[in-house]
Nucleic acid binder design. Structure first.
Length: 509
RNA sequence: GGUCCGUUCGGCUAGUCAGGUCAGGCCCCCAGGUUUUCAUCCUGGUAACACGGGUUCGAAUCCCGUACGGACUACCA
């Protein structure tokens, strides 16, 4: 299926780093566009001048780049519906706000923030909630209660004003959500939302509708937190007499323990990232961890995120972003919130790590090895990585599993010594060293067959000798197939480690 | 408080729209097996339809109610 009229957008506000819930929303938009042959647009909604955070926009762009989520139009790439930053479209919005006043769907409000707060407090003290609605607007300072002359006078004097939406009274708004189906709301519970602020900027509601219309957005796919404002948005489209896009409200990403929306605090508290990339707050200097810096692969991260709320309908769980682009469908997005599960995220990373080829992993591992003060050939690293990759989840865990490939044991695990270093061990290993020294083809399989044969001929007991040998080579009872280790470190190193081990551990009484 | 949304194993979920297999899979956890060690791997296991009504021969599935949870309720998005 391909439809060039399908156009979706992701419209973040540059108020800070993008949290993984936002990344998932963007991902679903991206997948929806790809699946349907549509266009994906990145628009920056920076209509709140007070909350602007330097670097946030760049962070968002960098995050998507890391994830492999690309845009067809938008900031930094352009397109025929630009500009794609709302502050650069400022002039547009007042024009549309005024159009609403002209056609009777909007009005000027002259109440100041302080006045309104005062009223709110009064209501609160009476245990009532103030809402600027059809009832209350009759008592407040606006172009509905003021005469036309008074209104014009105030306007001419430069009195600060806002433009509000004139919410219809007692009307049923019927909406459709692609995920939830039919939703109905009575307008009498809605308020007269501000569409245009006294600072000359539109609010989200106005800017969003105007831009979605002008940018010919066909489907609005966004977080569930927007569902309560859907009636307003639908009414706005109707007030402008514009065609409405389709709406899909995605379920929220929840904190792993308990309930509630996943937040930055949960990450700090439970020790996992909630942001794709590390973020340093420009004001406080505080650093928030990122999935990338924590060692997650971008493809694993994207896969994990995609499956939090969507599934293909069968048992498959591993998908590249390209595969997701072919399979994704809004129909298969769930209705309920999904708790972020760190264990599953780790599992995903493991799956991708195992699938990566050894050369790539060795390349990623090299800086860590160098940092440990070890100089080795990349080929040697590849061999080591291939032997242990299935026992780690992250590249940074590789060192703990491979350090004995690069340096001789500094200690010999006391527990292991106690358990596996028997009276006969010194004698066995001393003799075995002579056998090993005589082998000319020092390959894993050849050494294995010679050593095993030697053990059997001498009736020493496989476990007895092998554990002692492992202890001497590795320093502990861990690691992959011992003959693979011996093969990799080589004959000379093996013999030297035996000498060192015999000397260090000594005879057992 | 009000409005809206949601509710299947500990977590992610399939199954719900078109009622009818011991409610399936993955992660986690537990046990066993393989192994010279650890890990991997293999096998098996514990474990759920929020509750109460109704419709029906039959309900996780349709309807109503209740409970619980969440989101929203700014001149923020």
């Amino acid at each position: 299926m391909s439809n060039s009229n399908i156009r979706v957008r992701f419209a973040p506000s540059p108020t800070g780093p993008l949290h993984i819930g936002g990344v998932r929303t963007a991902l679903y938009n991206y997948l929806f566009a790809r699946k349907n042959g549509g266009k994906f647009i990145l628009r920056i909604e920076d209509t709140d001048q007070n909350r602007f955070v330097p670097g946030a926009e760049q962070y968002i762009i960098d995050s998507f780049k890391w994830c492999g989520i690309t845009f067809d139009e938008g900031v930094t790439i352009g397109g025929e519906y630009g500009p794609y930053t709302q502050s650069e479209r400022k002039e547009l919005y007042s024009e549309y706000a005024k159009r609403l006043i002209e056609n009777g769907h909007g009005y000027y409000g002259f109440d100041t923030g302080e006045e309104l707060n005062k009223v709110r407090k009064e209501y609160e003290s009476q245990k009532k909630t103030f809402v600027y609605n059809a009832e209350e607007r009759k008592r407040l300072r606006n172009s509905l209660t003021l005469s036309e002359e008074e209104t014009n006078k105030l306007l001419e004097e430069g009195t600060p004003y806002v433009i509000r939406f004139k919410m219809p009274e007692n009307d049923i708004v019927v909406m459709n959500d692609m995920i939830r189906g039919k939703v109905e709301v009575n307008t009498s519970v809605l308020d007269d939302k501000i569409l245009f602020k006294s600072d000359g900027m539109p609010t989200y509601h106005l800017a969003n509708i105007v831009d979605d219309h002008l940018m010919k957005i066909s489907h609005v796919i966004r977080g569930e937190e927007w569902l309560p404002s859907l009636p307003l948005h639908v009414l706005l489209y109707e007030a402008f007499d514009w065609d409405k896009p389709e709406f899909a409200h995605l379920p929220l990403l929840l904190k792993p323990d308990g309930n509630g929306k996943l937040s930055k605090r949960d990450g700090d508290r439970l020790g996992f990232p909630v942001f794709p990339l590390e973020w340093t707050d420009p004001k406080t200097g505080s650093v928030s961890s990122g999935f990338r810096e924590d060692g997650y692969f971008a493809d694993a991260f994207v896969n994990m995120l995609a499956m939090l709320g969507w599934n293909p309908g069968d048992d498959r769980e591993l998908f590249t972003i390209e595969e997701l682009s072919k399979e994704f469908s809004i129909d298969r997005v769930g209705k309920s919130g999904a708790k972020f599960d760190l264990a599953k995220a780790t599992w995903y990373n493991h799956q991708y790590l195992v699938k990566k080829d050894n050369a790539e992993l060795a390349g990623l591992f090299m800086p860590i090895v160098v940092n440990e003060g070890v100089l080795v050939e990349i080929e040697y690293l590849e061999e080591a990585v291939s032997l242990v990759k299935d026992r780690v989840n992250f590249v940074h865990e590789l060192w703990a599993q491979t350090d004995y490939f690069f340096k001789r044991p500094e200690t010999y695990d006391p527990k292991a010594v106690k358990k596996r270093w028997k009276k006969e061990s010194f004698d066995h290993i001393s003799k075995l060293k002579i056998v090993l020294a005589e082998i000319t083809e020092f390959s894993s399989s050849n050494v294995e067959s010679i050593v095993k044969q030697w053990i059997e001929e001498n009736e020493y007991g496989m476990g007895m000798v092998m554990n002692a040998l492992r202890l001497i080579i590795v320093g502990a009872l861990k690691g992959p197939h011992l003959f693979d280790i011996i093969d990799l470190i080589g004959q000379e190193e093996t013999l030297e480690r035996i000498d060192q081990g015999l000397h260090e551990i000594g005879r057992k009484e």
